[in-house]
């Protein structure tokens, strides 16, 4: 309600001021009018954004594909995480390819970074986050293989073993261990860390992998152009007001 009152008030005052300026016989100052019209356009853009904005989010590993609005398909070609010497994050770079519905490449190896989104028509793709995706291949006594992702569990006797992640105590990639959290149905009863070929219930630990996945956000904002026009009008209004004031002061 206060926003509606504000917009009505702004509209009435802006129109009133503009009419007075047009009728004025002396020196006319249109800077504030442009600025106020810009604020009204901004209000319209904000309403359009509020009602029509859509966004989606996906974690992608290298080679993964995701469907975008407009029947585009985006494929993650590579994901890099660079750090400074101090370990401070320097860049997350998701290089993507985008195909149209006929499979034709429309975007080839585009690096999406923070502050460097990809724009395809109305859709914008942002570098939003990243995560580590740990997977362990469990080999059943029967020889059957099963890939277990972090957060999922297996049954071991009467207990559930939740796969919580992988770690390397020595920092050596050959010394990677899998960490399970044991749960008896009521409480956590302990933690177990196991290396390759060690046995857990009816399974043997096989391949252990831990790789980064990128978090990309797709945004479709129908108010984008309106807000952009509003921002330009506000900037223009401020500049015109300023320049006119300076000119009057000097003369």
């Amino acid at each position: 309600m206060p926003i509606v009152v504000f917009i009505v008030n702004l509209s009435v005052c802006s129109i009133d001021r503009l009419v007075k300026q047009i009728r004025k016989t002396g020196k006319k100052r249109f800077g504030p009018d442009i600025l106020h019209i810009g604020l009204l356009v901004l209000a319209v853009g904000a309403i359009v954004t509020f009602t029509g904005r859509r966004e989606g989010f996906a974690y992608l590993a290298e080679g993964d594909r995701v469907r975008l609005p407009g029947d585009y398909v985006m494929e993650l070609e590579s994901f890099e995480f660079h750090t400074y010497e101090s370990g401070r994050p320097k860049a997350w770079i998701s290089t993507v390819n985008v195909y149209d519905e006929q499979g034709k490449v429309i975007v080839d190896s585009y690096p999406i970074r923070v502050n460097h989104p990809l724009r395809i028509g109305r859709i914008k793709i942002y570098q939003s986050s990243y995560s580590e995706e740990a997977t362990v291949t469990l080999i059943h006594n029967s020889g059957e293989k099963k890939d277990l992702k972090r957060g999922y569990h297996i049954n071991v006797g009467d207990e559930l073993y939740f796969f919580r992640g992988v770690y390397s105590g020595s920092g050596n990639s050959d010394d990677v261990k899998v960490v399970f959290e044991k749960w008896d149905g009521q409480e956590i009863t302990g933690m177990v860390s196991l290396g390759r070929n060690q046995q857990v219930g009816e399974y043997r630990i096989g391949k252990i992998s831990n790789h980064l996945v990128t978090g990309l956000q797709a945004v479709v904002d129908p108010g984008y152009t309106t807000v952009l026009i509003a921002v330009i009008l506000i900037g223009l209004g401020l500049s015109v007001t300023y320049i006119q004031k300076l000119g009057e002061k000097q003369s």
């Binding site: 954004t49 904005r53 966004e55 923070v114 502050n115 460097h116 989104p117 914008k124 942002y126 956000q217 945004v219 904002d221 984008y224 807000v227 921002v231 506000i234 900037g235 401020l238």
Partner: peptide, 19 residues
């Protein structure tokens, strides 16, 4: 106004996808 609101909003749109 230009710095805090206009440039700030443009930067937010470029970085996070919303003004």
């Amino acid at each position: 106004t230009a710095g805090a609101l206009i440039f700030g909003a443009i930067w937010a749109e470029v970085a996070w996808g919303r003004y």
